[in-house]
Design a protein around this nucleic acid. Structure first.
Lengths: 152, 152
DNA sequence: GGTAAATGTTAGGCTACCTAACTGTGAGCC
DNA sequence: GGCTCACAGTTAGGTAGCCTAACATTTACC
């Protein structure tokens, strides 16, 4: 199955490549899982992330964009929708009149808490199908994956 | 950080919920990682998956759709683009004239191999930053995650 | 104070997805 | 055989999210 990889005179260790291939496959499936877990019909993953960030403290549109991995205009678009839904408000940054702070409203916090709880329970139900060893293995790997995502 | 979860008189074990929350966060970051690893500019993740499936054996449009997690018309759309790019051909299923088989062409196989190799190398470079223990931990967790995604 | 950089917004366009409606084929049943 | 219904794809039309480019406003730097 990995035969075709050997055509490139790899500068990279082949065991590393094999793990990379498995990891990539799992990653693809995980994306699929993530999508199915997040299809509440109420809030999109991006909206959840935005609310989650704003829940900690008001932040700028540009930071929302950076955290979501999209351009500023796309973030603006989403934030305006959240504002129209009454979940956030936009107010000028007192320290910089160019900037706009995105701040969670009460209903916004409620909506985020509710959606987050629902999703956690859905994932917990999935994790319940694992045995203790498997859960321990998974838990141990999470920091490793985080390390990968942060250095990417 | 998890305080707000206790407001729901959870029917679920709280340790499970805590793991679920961490898992969900990592999952979100992994999605981001996956996107950045897959932004070749040449083939989208969906196209890669489609070619990957067709590389094993010709398959129906409906199966492509199911595997990609999209509706049939969306799969048709993507497959037509792949066909226009010369990477696959569509031919009637000899055993059922209603069905259409998606089959990889030579250039399609080449394109897929090249893109896959490039992505593996990119991920391998990332994995190279981990130490042996971390890689072992990650490798052990992949089957567990696969189990989750398959039962979802 | 004048130029350049930074922050958002608006405008316009692209792509991928969806549902609904349609064509054509297979399967079951008189 | 012919009817009816289910199935496989395609086409048509619409929506949502993302992008780049162009703009207004404010800040930062000589």
């Amino acid at each position: 199955m990995l035969g075709y990889l050997t055509v490139s005179p790899s500068t990279t260790d082949s065991r590393l490549l094999a793990l990379a291939q498995s990891f990539r496959t799992t990653l693809r499936h995980a994306v699929y899982l993530s999508r199915s877990m997040d299809s509440d019909g109420e809030l999109t993953t991006m909206q959840m992330s935005t609310l989650s960030m704003a829940a900690e403290e008001p932040l700028r549109v540009s930071r929302v964009a950076a955290n979501l991995g999209v351009r500023v205009p796309s973030a603006t678009e989403q934030i305006i929708k959240l504002e129209q839904a009454g979940l956030v408000i936009r107010r000028p940054d007192p320290t910089d009149s160019r900037a706009v702070l995105v701040q969670l409203t009460g209903p916004g916090r409620d909506a985020w808490t509710a959606a987050s709880t629902r999703r956690n329970e859905r994932v917990a139900a999935l994790l319940d199908q694992l045995d203790d060893d498997e859960r321990a293995t998974l838990a141990a790997a999470l920091p490793v994956i985080e390390k990968l995502t942060s250095t990417a």
